[in-house]
Design a binder for these strands. Structure first.
Lengths: 254, 254
DNA sequence: CGTTCCGTTGAGGTTGTTCAAGTAATGTGG
DNA sequence: CCACATTACTTGAACAACCTCAACGGAACG
């Protein structure tokens, strides 16, 4: 769990700015070993002698500006990533060019597993705000996994988690109404914020209404109308991309 | 790729009966090392000395009767499985009890990865016909993966494939019309048949219309109407659960 | 400070759902 | 092996949820 104070301000106190608002010194202090990477790289039970190897492998950082892609569908897969600050969306395209948002990654979460099956990325990853990621060369990580059972376990869990998360998303798309989907999405983001040590009630969702709609299988207009409706009912309080959940139970009950 | 002649009749020549139609002797002959397990367990590049270890770990079989569950959501995760004959669906439930079909597994495909993240299964797996699976104890497989890079690679690819498959399914649910979804589904099953050495044009889909609807995010009535429409247009030829694809290109063009 | 992108809201249309009835398959016990 | 019970599939008609098109106000950004 990411509880490092260094990252907290990014999401909570500088909601409109992202990583850019964090002073460079702080940014530098938030090295992988003390921040988001915990989640990917610091399984409990990793021995003192394994840790340095791990850090040697993983700790290269990369900045991605808002709108830029970290990787593109169809390009060779080489690295996994952990979001250090900011947030990204993953998208997938049809033959006919239609694109859909398939995922949202917040600070502390991992990225890039879609490339493992074919050595080519199946999705594109695009920054929703100026962000920074840790680069984890897959080949090196694989080697490490053969040396360390804890590391192997961690990687398996990461993949397993994504499998379950995507299955839940399929369920959501397949059997929930528009209202239910929006509510479930807000609760999901809220829950992930709690996991990462942030507020469950307030957050900045850097996706546009169109991104949300694409992710939730509906149009941007329906997203907007649904959020307005929730607001009228006193369930949430929204001002553009900033969202406060007022009645969490109310959202859960649909 | 599963090309064993022993399995072919199951899907092609005994469409109405499933594994039950195969004589017991044949069934016994179709041991893991020669059949479905290839896909899970016989990565290219596995050395002669690794192979026996592998077989020692994986080759326990289990029969699952139509309608029975191989595992249930919420039960402890211990094994992965490879479908040896027959087919299963995976389902996931909401808090409120609503169930949705989240996957279809044909002979040669793997099953159970949904349990890795939490050591508890997230889905249930239910046989669509009398089926048989190979049991692969996860703990033993993990050990093996640390000894064999090829095995590690294979497991990673399996998980990666499921991640990509589920992302595609999300796309389908999120942005395709009912017609497109049904067509995509038929093409998907057709393609998987080809991969497994069967006919791309003819197959028995043991799911009910309700299962398909649940999987595709629509009602059973819409599935039925859509299939009827495709039939009228000369795209497919259906008689209950048996489906022949007449105009593959036509389906691709929507 | 203008331009572009984003968000909101309304009116009307379409797709897919719901409810209902009837028919075909499947499985079971006699 | 047949008659029956059950489950699965098909089709129709009315309705609702969501989409499309359109117009406008506001925020973000160079």
């Amino acid at each position: 769990m990411l509880t490092s104070a260094a990252l907290t301000p990014i999401a909570v106190h500088y909601p409109g700015r992202g990583a850019a608002a964090m002073p460079p010194a702080t940014r530098h202090a938030a090295r992988c070993s003390t921040c988001a990477m915990r989640h990917l790289c610091m399984p409990q039970g990793m021995s003192a002698e394994e840790l340095p190897k791990l850090e040697a492998v993983i700790c290269t950082a990369r900045a991605v500006r808002r709108g830029e892609s970290l990787y593109r569908a169809g390009t060779p897969f080489e690295n996994l990533y952990a979001v250090r600050s900011g947030s990204l969306k993953t998208t997938m395209a049809h033959r006919d060019g239609r694109e859909q948002v398939t995922g949202l990654r917040l600070a502390g979460e991992s990225l890039g597993l879609d490339g493992i099956s074919n050595d080519v990325h199946a999705c594109s990853a695009i920054a929703l705000e100026d962000s920074s990621v840790c680069i984890v060369p897959y080949a090196a990580l694989k080697r490490l996994c053969r040396e360390s059972g804890a590391m192997q376990e961690r990687l398996h869990k990461l993949m397993g988690e994504q499998i379950v998360r995507e299955a839940s998303q399929m369920m959501m798309l397949g059997s929930l109404s528009a209202d239910e989907r929006v509510a479930a999405f807000l609760l999901d983001v809220s829950g992930r914020n709690v996991q990462r040590g942030y507020s469950s009630a307030e957050f900045n969702l850097r996706m546009t209404r169109e991104d949300m709609g694409s992710y939730l299988g509906m149009t941007l207009e329906t997203v907007s109308r649904t959020l307005s409706k929730f607001q009228k009912r006193g369930l949430i309080d929204t001002r553009g991309k900033f969202i406060r959940i007022v009645d969490l139970e109310g959202l859960r009950d649909l």
